Amino acid sequence: IKRYDVVVFQPDGSIFLVVECKQPNVPISQTVFDQIARYNLTLKANYLMVTNGLNHYFCQMDFEKESYLFLNDIPNYNSIEK
């Protein structure tokens, strides 16, 4: 069973953002990104966030290239094309 820490839905029911939360003593590593990327294979969120409460990383999915692009900040929900 997969457990998701935070899932933010859009009004149409699609998933806007998935957040993976780790404890502050857990460094954010490639393994953590691999975990959330595996979750997102089924969720299909456009945005991902990983945090340990001290460090936060945001990325936007590129489904065509099967990759993600790191962002400087979490996107403003109201500014995103829906």
Rank of each mutant, 00 (worst) to 15 (best):
I1R: 09
K2V: 05
R3A: 02
Y4S: 00
V7F: 04
V8K: 11
V8E: 15
Q10K: 15
D12N: 12
G13K: 10
G13M: 08
S14F: 00
I15L: 01
F16Y: 14
L17D: 12
L17R: 14
V18R: 03
V18H: 06
V19G: 04
C21Q: 12
K22N: 11
K22H: 05
Q23A: 15
P24Q: 04
N25W: 09
I28D: 01
I28V: 15
I28N: 03
S29L: 07
Q30E: 11
Q30R: 05
F33T: 05
D34V: 06
A37S: 12
Y39T: 01
N40M: 02
L43T: 09
K44Y: 04
A45N: 11
A45R: 08
Y47L: 01
Y47C: 01
Y47H: 10
L48P: 03
V50K: 06
T51P: 07
T51M: 08
N52V: 12
G53H: 10
G53W: 07
G53A: 07
G53K: 06
N55M: 06
H56Y: 07
Y57D: 08
F58H: 15
C59T: 12
Q60P: 00
M61W: 04
M61Y: 07
D62T: 05
K65D: 13
S67K: 10
L69R: 15
L71S: 10
L71T: 14
L71N: 10
N72G: 11
D73V: 00
I74P: 07
P75A: 02
N76Q: 13
N78T: 05
N78D: 14
N78Y: 08
I80A: 06
K82G: 09
